[in-house]
């Protein structure tokens, strides 16, 4: 009987929850980040080499080379692949208050990201992407304008190619037990989301968005329950999407994840199951899904700052097999 006495105190402890002092929830858009981390590794096909060199404490340059086949979207069921090779140059500025990332690729893509904390609770994120496959000079001009005048000028340029470019502003407000976000994008895209901690473990949130260019609007709800051993999330949106995730942390090194996606409009159902092993020398992620697709992603640490990456994906139904290897140097 003595062993049965200890259990009562734990139920008492949750009763003492101070509902005015709940933890800050995770941002709405990152609600299923644990599941994404295990189930959506960056699979690639071909060869990649990434090199990051820090010039000083805050500034770093990155170079990356990619060679391999890339898929071309087509109407037919068979995938068409063409061999490509490109080089990407990036510049990063990292500071606790301000983060700037710029990327330019030889195929004419340019991306810029900014994240800065305006006040203690309010932070801003901006994202811009320009795709112009044959206009290198234009991209360079945009790049120069960007450097000189900031982001607003790049939007002027973006309007010339409405379908190829994106621009997005996010404002995040972090409260003591809630987070709110306002989103502004080109193509008259507006969005807002709010997430609130209800109990120490449970948080509930909702979002609305309106895309003026496509005359579409939607509303979504999400719930997230997390303890230190598991995370379960559910999300429903008026676009017909239902998504459920469950991640179980078996130990510090091992976690298992599963997810279920259902689209009411198209009737698509997919579910996947994956594992995530974080060992001292490597990180290994594997998953298998209901479309008959098995994938594995291995990151092996060869040396300090030298990582070897192996990626494999088998799609038995489409007979599409993708294998890739890469090397990451620096950081």
């Amino acid at each position: 009987m003595a062993t049965l006495i200890p259990p009562p105190p734990p139920p008492q402890a949750p009763e003492k929850v101070d509902y005015m002092d709940l933890p800050t929830p995770i941002p709405y858009e990152e609600i299923h980040r644990e599941a994404m981390m295990s189930l959506k590794p960056e699979l690639f096909e071909g060869m990649r080499f990434d090199f990051t060199k820090g010039l000083n404490q805050r500034f770093s340059l990155s170079h990356s080379v990619f060679m391999g086949p890339t898929e071309i979207p087509s109407q037919s069921t068979e995938t068409i692949k063409i061999p490509t090779a490109h080089y990407e140059f990036g510049a990063n500025f990292l500071d606790p208050k301000l983060m700037l990332f710029g990327r330019i690729m030889t195929d004419g893509r340019l991306g810029a990201r900014l994240k800065c904390d305006l006040t203690e609770n309010l932070s801003m994120k901006a994202n811009a992407q320009v795709n112009s496959p044959n206009l290198y000079f234009k991209v360079l001009i945009v790049c120069l304008i960007n450097v000189k005048c900031g982001f607003s000028s790049s939007f002027v340029q973006l309007t010339n190619e409405p379908h190829m470019s994106h621009g997005m502003f996010n404002f995040d407000y972090k409260g003591s037990d809630y987070r709110a976000q306002f989103q502004l994008g080109n193509g008259a895209l507006f969005g807002a989301s709010y997430i609130q901690s209800v109990t120490p473990n449970l948080s509930l949130g909702g979002e609305v968005f309106w895309a003026g260019q496509h005359r579409k609007s939607g509303i979504g709800y999400a719930a997230r329950y997390n303890t230190d051993k598991m995370v379960a999330t559910g999300q429903v949106a008026s676009t017909g999407m239902v998504s459920l995730n469950y991640v179980q942390k078996i130990s510090e090194k091992v976690s298992l994840a599963s997810d279920f996606m259902y689209n009411y409009m198209s009737g698509d159902v997919t579910s996947s199951f994956g594992y995530d092993y974080i060992l001292r020398q490597c990180r290994l992620r594997g998953k298998i899904d209901s479309n008959g697709c098995a994938a594995a992603f291995l990151e092996e640490r060869l040396n300090m700052g030298l990582n070897f990456v192996l990626s494999a994906e088998l799609d038995h139904r489409k007979k599409d097999y993708k294998f890739g290897f890469g090397l990451t140097v620096g950081e």
Binding site: Y277, Q281, C282, L284, G286, I288, A294, A312
Partner: peptide, 9 residues
């Protein structure tokens, strides 16, 4: 694909 690398690691 899924388990041989895991066993090796």
């Amino acid at each position: 694909i899924l388990f041989v690398p895991l066993i090796i690691e």
